[in-house]
């Protein structure tokens, strides 16, 4: 408790409420309202309709939604797999390698996503590997961009797990492979599902690298939203964004349910 008198707290709360409304609540509320608005030429929308939402779920937009979901699923899974592998392998690696590789794995956070996209364009528009124009280049871009986060999540969980679990398992006669499969990976599962959730959320909203590399037949929803705004169809864009958020939240809830499901099987009846 910093402010002890109740009367002195009110002005602070008022200031907080104002900032919170402008910064956090208003953008979200406006987006939802716009997605449902027929027109908006005044302080409030002119009327409400679900037509935009309907449009966002059909035709090209629906295709983009599916592309986004598939991209997020593939890139997220790959990132969790590679990230977990990296975290486990580096934990046993010599110190110089661990430090160096750790810095390298965090690098995509620091590099602008547009540059990651440009790099892939430059590198894979030429032999030996021609990926430009295929969906693979989008998937690779997403993998690179979310890998840092999934690696960091799993690696930090790994440092919190004591070595003695693996040691005891080994002393009981478990070969390294069995220790990995039955002890280390199950104990990392919560972190891996958190990493997957983060990867999916980031991938679903990725626009910088995707807009550099996407082929016509693999356009993600954020790129479609941009095309819509660019053409002035802002209500459709708002509706598509709302759908994007909805799809992301549903995926996250499912992932959360999966990991919590694993955890709650722990409580016996």
């Amino acid at each position: 408790m910093l402010i002890w008198s109740r009367s002195a707290r009110w002005p602070i709360w008022a200031l907080f409420a104002a900032a919170f409304l402008v910064i956090v609540a208003a953008p979200l509320a406006v987006l939802v309202a716009a997605a449902l608005a027929t027109e908006w030429n005044d302080v409030l929308p002119g009327g409400f309709t679900v037509a935009h939402l309907g449009a966002a779920l059909t035709g090209e937009n629906q295709g983009s939604l599916l592309v986004s979901l598939q991209t997020a699923a593939v890139a997220g899974l790959a990132a969790v797999a590679v990230g977990t592998w990296a975290a486990l392998a580096l934990a046993a690696a010599p110190r110089w390698l661990r430090k160096g590789a750790d810095g390298l794995l965090h690098l995509p956070v620091a590099i602008p996503s547009v540059v990651v996209g440009l790099g892939l364009l430059v590198a894979y528009s030429r032999p030996p590997l021609l990926l430009n124009g295929t969906r693979w280049i989008v998937l690779i871009a997403h993998l690179v961009l979310v890998l840092s986060f999934s690696y960091a999540t799993v690696a930090s969980a790994l440092t919190r797990i004591d070595d003695s679990y693996a040691q005891v398992a080994a002393s009981l006669g478990a070969r390294p492979a069995l220790v990995l499969l039955r002890i280390r990976l199950p104990m990392l599962l919560p972190a891996m599902s958190a990493a997957a959730a983060l990867a999916v959320a980031l991938s679903m909203g990725e626009v910088g690298a995707t807009i550099m590399v996407y082929p016509p037949d693999w356009r993600t929803l954020p790129v479609t939203v941009f095309t819509l705004t660019d053409r002035g169809r802002t209500f459709d864009a708002a509706a598509a964004t709302l759908i994007l958020l909805g799809a992301t939240l549903v995926t996250l809830l499912i992932l959360g349910r999966v990991s919590r499901g694993r955890a709650t099987t722990g409580v016996s009846p």
Binding site: S164, Y165, Q167, A170, S171, G173, P186, M187, L189, G266
Partner: peptide, 22 residues
Amino acid sequence: VPPHKRGLGVVVQQYALFPHLT
């Protein structure tokens, strides 16, 4: 010889019971 081939019983300080197993 690696630990898994020694066949010793080990009890560590914080027990290290596997939390995901009964």
